[in-house]
């Protein structure tokens, strides 16, 4: 082959490669790109309502509060007597749904640490002050002074609304809206889904194909 034939061959080869590239690009452009499902936030995880209800929310929402009407069952004249078993655990009859886990073992299984033995529909602090059911947080504060001080300063417990009180109101929760007073540990929760990296597959039940088209 002489020089010019080689040149022509090289050029033709380049032309073929270019043409092939053009074809590849065009066919690739026509292929439909797969649409990815979108990860949706489960509204369960957005719920800002407290895990428990205090007495006021129960009454306001007209829930059944008969449980708090002690003298439906108890007699005003008769003093409640507590019964303990051999190891010192409280024996429950009617209130057997209550579990006691407040402080060290058996420290709090004496009902009248908090409840007023003489007026069952009231609380009574260890220093003899009586409080209504709506004042439960003050009752807690009578023992848990530091935490109560934090709570009053909004440093303990949940708040919502406005950090700037000049612009709006702030809502502060009562102790019992997070803590069961008989079993004070905050309940366990199922964790929301973990992080999704770029190349993660999205669980089918949380996905939608509701792509938003802007064109």
């Amino acid at each position: 082959m002489n020089d010019e034939t080689k040149k022509a061959a090289a050029l033709t080869g380049a032309a073929v490669v270019f043409a092939a590239l053009a074809v590849v690009f065009l066919t690739a452009g026509m292929r439909e790109r797969p649409q990815h499902p979108i990860f949706l936030v489960d509204p369960v995880h957005l719920d800002t309502s407290p895990v428990r209800m205090n007495y006021d929310t129960l009454t306001d929402a007209r829930y059944d509060t008969s449980d708090y009407d002690c003298y439906l069952c108890h007699s005003r004249a008769e003093r409640v007597e507590l019964q303990f078993d051999d190891v010192g655990d409280l024996i429950l009859k009617e209130h057997d749904y209550i579990t006691f886990a407040h402080g060290p073992a058996r420290a709090a299984n004496y009902c009248f640490n908090c409840h007023n033995r003489d007026r069952l529909d009231q609380f009574r602090t260890q220093y003899g002050r009586t409080l209504s059911f709506s004042q439960s947080s003050e009752l807690c504060g009578s023992c848990h002074g530091v935490t109560y001080r934090d709570w009053v300063a909004d440093a303990h417990g949940r708040t919502s609304g406005y950090w700037n009180l000049a612009m709006g109101d702030r809502k502060r929760l009562d102790c019992t809206q997070c803590h069961d007073p008989h079993d004070t540990r905050f309940p366990s929760l199922a964790p929301a889904p973990g992080p999704h990296s770029m190349r993660d597959r999205i669980p089918a039940q949380l996905a939608t194909d509701g792509r938003n088209d802007d064109e």
């Binding site: 080689k6 090289a10 050029l11 380049a14 270019f18 590239l21 690009f25």
Partner: peptide, 21 residues
């Protein structure tokens, strides 16, 4: 240039276009 030049430039051009795509 000679055929080697054309082939070389053609190959580089093809890869460049691939990169552009």
């Amino acid at each position: 240039g000679d055929w080697r030049y054309y082939a070389w430039i053609g190959a580089l051009g093809a890869v460049t276009i691939l990169g552009l795509n």
